[in-house]
Amino acid sequence: MDPGEHTNMGKKYKEARSKIDRDKRYGLVEACELVKVVAPAKFDETVECAARLGVNPRHADQMIRSSVSLPHGTGKSVRVLVFAKGDRVNQAKDAGADFVGSDDIVAKIQEGWLDFDVAIATPDMMGLVGRLGRILGPRNLMPNPKVGTVTMDVKKAVTERKAGRIEFRTERTGIIHAPIGKVSFEAVKLQENLETFLRTLQRLKPATAKGKYFKSVSLSSTMGPGIRLDTNEVQSMVTAE
């Protein structure tokens, strides 16, 4: 790494941040255009949405965990692992799974191998996969029926993940982070992905959640500054028919 790279990135970050009015709350259209402009890195940065919701994740009925297919995908190549046996093995491979196996894959993971982004399992494999809880759980890689990664329909699950289906969950602070594309995406595609994600969060609003639901929403690229959205516009968009 160039010794001056950190300094250079600091200058680029400051320059990018100077283009954002920190007191302003941006509309969705303007924010999706601006996040592309202020991305400082030379590589194709990921654009992420962070939404702080009016929920208390310490209460089980207010913990949000789900998944959604973005209309334009994430722009990221996703490595999919499937735990399966019998006919499901060929179904997974035909759908484009990168790795398929059972006991052999479990042993490999126990030895430290983790070169995959999503793990899918058929229900009958969960007894075996459960042994990996301490390894996969903290990395958010454990198959889970709530997000559709424990299923007999492995073909559909693999196809959706390859096409850009994302998983998300509330953190302890009530914030949910999710990738919605790349800075190379057209602004309108980022906007459509963002709207799909936010509408999904609205549909998942717990009945016990009180007060303002979208407390804050922001967009940022991997190396770029945050852009705060107008939560009133967000709320109007997600509740509009």
Rank of each mutant, 00 (worst) to 15 (best):
Leu204Asp: 05
Ser69Trp: 02
Leu28Glu: 05
Pro143Cys: 11
Ala157Tyr: 00
Lys24Gly: 07
Lys19Arg: 15
Gln191Asp: 07
His72Glu: 13
Phe99Val: 15
Ala41Tyr: 08
Asn56His: 14
Gln235Ala: 11
Thr170Val: 07
Ile175Glu: 14
Arg88Thr: 07
Asp115Arg: 12
Val106Asn: 04
Ala41Val: 00
Leu229Lys: 08
Thr122Gly: 06
Arg165Glu: 13
Ala39Ile: 03
Tyr26Lys: 01
Arg25Glu: 15
Asp153Gly: 04
Gly73Ser: 00
Lys212Gln: 12
Lys212Cys: 02
Glu195Ser: 12
Lys93Trp: 10
Leu81Glu: 03
Lys85Asp: 10
Thr151Glu: 01
Arg161Asn: 15
Ile176Asn: 01
Asp98Pro: 01
Ala95Glu: 11
Ile227Met: 08
Pro123Gly: 05
Lys162Trp: 09
Ser220Ile: 00
Arg88Lys: 13
Val217Gly: 11
Arg169Val: 12
Ala39Thr: 01
Ala157Met: 00
Cys32Ile: 06
Leu204Glu: 09
Ser77Phe: 12
Gly224His: 06
Glu195Cys: 01
Lys205Gln: 08
Glu111Gln: 13
Leu219Cys: 10
Gly226Ser: 13
Gly127Thr: 10
Ala51Phe: 10
Lys212Val: 12
Ser220Thr: 09
Gly137Asn: 03
Arg139Thr: 04
Asp94Pro: 02
Ser221Glu: 02
Lys11Gly: 11
Ala60Trp: 07
Gly86Pro: 09
Arg134Pro: 07
Lys155Tyr: 13
Leu190Ala: 10
Arg172Leu: 15
Arg228Ile: 05
Val118Pro: 04
Val129Arg: 03
Lys42Trp: 10
Asp115Met: 07
Lys156Tyr: 08
Gly164Glu: 12
Arg172Pro: 01
Ile166Tyr: 00
Gly137Glu: 00
Ile109Met: 09
Val68Pro: 05
Lys210Pro: 11
Ala84Val: 07
Val234Leu: 02
Asp98Tyr: 01
Leu81Asn: 04
Gln91His: 10
Thr74Gln: 08
Ser218Gly: 06
Arg79Thr: 15
Tyr13Met: 15
Ala84Arg: 02
Ser236Trp: 04
Ser67Thr: 09
Val80Asn: 04
Arg88Trp: 04
Leu194Cys: 06
Thr151Cys: 00
Leu81Asp: 01
Glu171Tyr: 04
Met125Tyr: 05
Ala60Phe: 11
Ile120Thr: 05
Ile175Lys: 03
Val234Tyr: 13
Leu53Thr: 03
Ala16Ile: 08
Pro123Tyr: 04
Val158Met: 11
Gly133Ile: 10
Gln235Lys: 08
Ile105Pro: 02
Lys215His: 09
Gly127His: 07
Asp87Ser: 11
Pro138Gly: 03
Leu132Ala: 08
Met126Ser: 03
Leu28Cys: 06
Pro138Cys: 04
Arg134Met: 14
Ile20Val: 15
Asp117Leu: 03
Thr208Ser: 15
Lys19Ala: 12
Ser221Gln: 04
Asp44Arg: 12
Val47Cys: 13
Val234Asp: 06
Val217Asp: 09
Val118His: 00
